[in-house]
Design a protein around this nucleic acid. Sequence first.
DNA 1: TTGCTTGTTGGACGATCGTACAACAAGGCG
DNA 2: CGCCTTGTTGTACGATCGTCCAACAAGCAA
Lengths: 200, 200
Amino acid sequence: MKAPAFRRIEPDARRLALIEACARVLARAGSAGVSVRAIAVEAGVSPGLVSHYFPGIEALVAATYAHVEGAVAETLDRAVEAAGPDPRARLDAFVTTTFAPTIADPQLLATWIAFWSLVTARPAIAAQHDEQYAGSRARLESLLGDCGMPPGEQRRAAIAVSALLDGLWLELCLSPGCFSAEEAGDIARRFLDTLISTGR
Amino acid sequence: MKAPAFRRIEPDARRLALIEACARVLARAGSAGVSVRAIAVEAGVSPGLVSHYFPGIEALVAATYAHVEGAVAETLDRAVEAAGPDPRARLDAFVTTTFAPTIADPQLLATWIAFWSLVTARPAIAAQHDEQYAGSRARLESLLGDCGMPPGEQRRAAIAVSALLDGLWLELCLSPGCFSAEEAGDIARRFLDTLISTGR
DNA sequence: TTGCTTGTTGGACGATCGTACAACAAGGCG
DNA sequence: CGCCTTGTTGTACGATCGTCCAACAAGCAA
């Protein structure tokens, strides 16, 4: 009796396993340390399998970004739902969760940076970024609209809030000692106060 | 009579030439396309010379970031000076110039991304980022103080403004079609209005 | 059980990477 | 003019990269 040399699993599950392995490698070694072989070792498969499922590292990084971004969005959505019916409380939950340790994580940032490094040179990846950024902004517009913000102002406000959150999130990951997640949340919530209370 | 095979220049000038060549390679090929050989070709020197001046690519990228960041800071300072004595006009000039084509440039972003990708893994580079971020924030605190903001609020406000500018700058580079530089400037200036006018 | 489908292996291949070092020559000095 | 310092070259080296593909075997169907 011998143990199987490998396990056959359905393509979708294998793709997901490779994506998760890629995310772990990016978290550990950064965008410079990601390679077909490193991901294969991390996933416990042979190097050839990575090339069999993805035409190249770039495609795998793009798929990993899409997956991780989806997981982050899901976490945020769950936090918003858990906040109850009050629109402002839901918006605050969105902000607070953005800076929670699970999301404002330097290891997560590595996936973003690896993806950003491809945006400028690869048109297909630039299109993917446009799409995911638009989706994120739309979610924010919806939350702002629920707080009574007129539709005409939602787009601009969502751009502003998204930029502020992104900037705080980025620095929180890059220089964790400079300010705290609570401070970032306070800054963002105070900004939302001025956006929502004033009628402009 | 034969032309010289190469030119000897003083070490500081050679270092600068290599840094500028690195910036051009990063702008053209992104952080993935940067290598000792590519930089050597760009600078018109032999591959061995790069290793002779920098212990590795990472050190050269860090030096390039420091140099480019310094140039950006100088551009912003000049714009602030050119704005005249009015504190608020100086602050507005700072914002407007941040989104000017020279600075909000996808090619410049490549240098930032290459540097960011090293921050998490390399403590020395993390320290360099902390230092340059603190400097950028101090410059902003000074401009805010000139507008009458109490010292106790300057730190938090500088973090907020810096994050908003960074976030807008980042998206302006990554998705140039989503919103314009003028729109980004309007958003930032409006944010400054609420920060400065209100007494909190 | 036997056969077939196909997910998976694992090594070979050429290209490119960073590094090191001995040889060369440009430019200043005596 | 010839020597000396040293900035610079150019190559060789081993490691690692992404890609490819023939062979293998796991698991289902009959």
